[in-house]
Nucleic acid binder design. Structure first.
Lengths: 133, 133
DNA sequence: TTATCATATTAGAATAATTCCTGTCAAACC
DNA sequence: GGTTTGACAGGAATTATTCTAATATGATAA
């Protein structure tokens, strides 16, 4: 069970394992609070500090990415493959878009930057929100 | 001077005019704090509430757009034309990219959303930050 | 112009998300 | 066994933003 997390090279405490298994394969793009609430069920003494510390460690090792898509809070994505997002403007639901759009910046637009990547966000209203009015 | 702002149909108070003229043509993508500090010089009693209220009014009328690009705070852009951004991962400097990338979502990726738009962000390290190590 | 009224302003309190700090504990290392 | 290192919990501190309630002011019409 914890074999798959060995390679992370972080100390695998029970709290961290709970966070990791909650994140594993999770496509809901949870916020720190979502993670806290989920793990709280198994560890009633869990604190936000532990959630943030663990996320910080995982971020630094490139095992989760922080999404700046939601203007109210940070969201976290355990899927670190190159992908984009579709976001509902009403309920903030986020859906992964796995497609390569081949967008390049020409030399005159690059402003001397060392480019490291890009991301595309699509905005709209999801099916559920359309119905509820 | 204030003629150009008449069409906004918001009450044009001195504070608002100061905010509007600070934003006019501003390409720095300022945060609420940047705006507050700038206007404070002319209006020492300026409050954050006024900055946020005015931004809210302008947002609702589609005269500024809120950028969710910076994970620490919202940034505001008076340029409401369709454009994208190039962001420095070190200093958070934001540069406009005026180019149409023609990105479309195929039916199978659209998940029943009513699409309203998209935005592309390019990430990298700017020239200045490269030099300073 | 002036009176009226709806709206804007202000300071400060409240809230929400996140970060920091401190004492404690446990694992890993000698 | 003793020491170092890193993680934990809990709470305080910070930062961005929103709310509140009293007061002030721009816009409009008389």
């Amino acid at each position: 069970m914890m074999e798959k997390y060995r390679e992370l090279h972080i100390k695998l405490t029970p709290q961290r394992l709970a966070i990791l298994s909650f994140l594993d394969g999770n496509k809901s793009h949870p916020s720190a609070e979502d993670i806290y609430k989920a793990v709280l069920k198994q560890f009633p003494t869990m604190s936000f500090a532990t959630v943030y510390n663990t996320l910080e460690a995982l971020k630094n090792r490139g095992n989760v990415q922080e999404l700046k898509i939601d203007s109210h809070k940070k969201r976290y994505d355990p899927d670190i493959s190159r992908h984009h997002h579709l976001i509902c403007l009403k309920c903030s639901k986020i859906i992964d878009i796995h497609k390569d759009f081949k967008i390049a910046l020409s030399e005159d637009l690059i402003h001397g930057f060392d480019l490291m990547g890009n991301s595309v966000e699509f905005y709209g209203i999801c099916q559920k929100c359309k119905k509820h009015h």
